[in-house]
């Protein structure tokens, strides 16, 4: 299977310096569409869907491969190698921020900078560590995904309908956005919310920018501070934006924070 179509890799922009965007759990590469236009003039933009999300090849989803972050990390490195990328600026949201750190650990020669948007090293509270959730709350999420066949499959129906007032999003968005197979969503949720990546933070040698929202129930401020403390070469920026997706709710603030850092 060709890596490019497996991960629905999309390349745009007129620059040469590669900027790779990785979406988080629950969505696809369309999440970045308010951010990428600001960088298209000066960078080569690489967008992709994780296998199982968006327009990726669902046949390439093997539960054994994607049972942990390694499978996804392997894909990121394969995309970078396939496109002969070097000195990548990697921008990862949520769980993909951790994939960025893991990829940089495995193939440090490929990466120049990591930009971690609403990252979390581990979602579950553990002693002094505040992850934001108790184990039973995460179990409740996994159980609700287990039983919520409506949430994933049925949100598809209205997406096919016309989208008045938001025509700037384009047609292709309506039939693919956030498309997720329920069974895959379940396993991806498990991987996302049960992975503890705290131990890899301190060994990361690549400089990183942490973008932390000021009121994010998924990744609370303590988590951003923890990651900053453990990563030697990191800078922490607390955004005014609230929620878990500043690239959607406050794209201008997110863009200027990234530009200021670069």
């Amino acid at each position: 299977m060709d890596v490019i179509s497996r991960n629905n890799v999309v390349i745009k922009g007129s620059g040469t310096s590669p900027m790779m965007f990785a979406h988080g759990f629950g969505c696809d590469q369309n999440m970045w569409r308010f951010i990428t236009p600001a960088f298209e003039d000066s960078y080569q933009i690489i967008l992709f869907d994780h296998v199982g999300a968006g327009k990726s090849d669902l046949k390439a989803y093997h539960p054994a491969k994607y049972k942990d972050l390694d499978g996804y990390t392997q894909d990121i490195i394969e995309i970078a190698e396939k496109l002969n990328l070097e000195d990548i600026i990697f921008i990862g949201h949520s769980v993909s921020a951790m994939m960025g750190i893991l990829s940089a650990e495995k193939a440090p020669h490929l990466f120049k900078t990591l930009i971690l948007v609403s990252p979390s090293a581990s979602y579950i509270n553990d002693g002094d560590y505040t992850g934001g959730f108790s184990k039973s709350e995460i179990d409740e999420l996994l159980e609700s995904l287990n039983t919520n066949h409506m949430g994933w499959s049925m949100t598809m129906a209205p997406l096919i309908m016309a989208n008045p007032g938001r025509s700037e999003l384009g047609e292709e968005l309506t039939d693919s956005f956030c498309r997720t197979d329920p069974a895959i969503a379940q396993q991806f949720a498990r991987v996302t919310f049960l992975t503890d990546s705290r131990s890899v933070l301190s060994t990361c040698t690549i400089p990183a920018l942490i973008l932390q929202c000021s009121d994010d129930i998924i990744a609370p401020i303590e988590v951003g501070e923890y990651i900053h403390e453990k990563m030697d070469q990191s800078k922490l920026v607390i955004l005014e934006a609230t929620g878990h997706c500043p690239h959607l709710s406050a794209p201008e603030e997110t863009i200027s924070a990234i530009k200021a850092y670069l």
């Binding site: 759990f25 994933w152 049925m154 949100t155 007032g165 938001r166 956005f177 998924i218 929620g243 959607l248």
Partner: peptide, 18 residues
């Protein structure tokens, strides 16, 4: 936070979510 909020931002609406 992870699915519906992005849907609202990008698509404008969602329906029939359990």
């Amino acid at each position: 936070e992870t699915h519906l909020s992005p849907l609202l931002k990008l698509h404008g609406s969602f329906e029939e979510v359990a």
